[in-house]
């Protein structure tokens, strides 16, 4: 297969496959807890579940009030990484172009310079979090192979995307970039990256369990 055909495949069948695995895999990951279900709570409620559950989904996205210095670091680096990643993913004109060609919907892009800054910040946050993971005694103890694997898988699309601007062989770098994206998409449902959805169910459960007892979690 020559480079051109490979790119064609990756953009066509390859991407389709990755998106299907991603979508159905994630639906399954979210459905799984729902299917496992919970026993009906027979205690008389003091408060509701839906409202408090939704409130906790929202509330845990906000900056926590009380934090230790290491807590500050984790939260700030976490925010920068997630925001930088999302901005790069959603507001790069080439990405929007791709969505437009596939689904017909589009939205305004950010200037390439802004995207580069977002991507660089995101990479820097990831790097800092990695150093923290291997140096902080708590995080080193609780981390497992998957934590490092998903770190690499998340970093690659950002790095290769950024490298596109500087690449001598644009097409080859694009191939590498798309492969890294498809790998990430396929990995998400099978790894803790599924937290991109299950964090919502977790927060909801947490808020609902507390809300039932009249506590704002």
């Amino acid at each position: 297969m020559n480079q051109h055909a490979l790119l064609f495949f990756l953009r066509g069948q390859g991407l389709k496959f990755a998106v299907i695995v991603f979508t159905f895999g994630l639906i399954y990951r979210l459905l799984h807890p729902v299917l496992l279900g919970r026993k009906k709570n027979l205690a008389a409620p003091r408060g509701g579940e839906w409202g408090p559950g939704m409130r906790t989904i929202w509330h845990r996205s906000l900056f926590p009030v009380r934090l230790t210095p290491r807590g500050h670091f984790i939260i700030i680096a976490g925010y920068i990484f997630h925001l930088g990643f999302l901005i790069t993913l959603l507001f790069l004109s080439q990405h929007i172009e791709l969505v437009k060609n596939t689904f017909g919907i589009y939205w305004p892009a950010l200037p390439p310079g802004a995207i580069s800054i977002a991507a660089v910040l995101s990479i820097a946050a990831l790097a800092a979090l990695f150093v923290h993971r291997i140096t902080d005694p708590v995080k080193r103890l609780i981390s497992d192979f998957q934590d490092y694997l998903v770190w690499v898988l998340t970093l690659l699309p950002l790095l290769t995307g950024l490298a596109l601007d500087m690449a001598a062989d644009y097409q080859r770098m694009l191939i590498v970039h798309i492969i890294s994206v498809e790998l990430l998409l396929i990995a998400i449902p099978f790894t803790k990256l599924a937290h991109m959805l299950t964090t919502f169910s977790s927060r909801w459960y947490n808020g609902a369990i507390a809300g039932y007892k009249g506590v704002k979690a």
């Binding site: 990951r29 799984h32 807890p33 729902v34 299917l35 496992l36 279900g37 919970r38 026993k39 934090l67 230790t68 290491r70 807590g71 984790i74 939260i75 976490g78 993971r133 902080d136 708590v138 995080k139 609780i142 981390s143 497992d144 934590d147 803790k192 599924a194 937290h195 299950t198 964090t199 169910s201 977790s202 459960y205 947490n206 369990i209």
Partner: peptide
Amino acid sequence: QIDGPMASFFSSCVHCGLCAD
């Protein structure tokens, strides 16, 4: 003991270490 909330909680943990504090 693994019910919906448990499965969701285990799935979601990103080993950030914040709970320690």
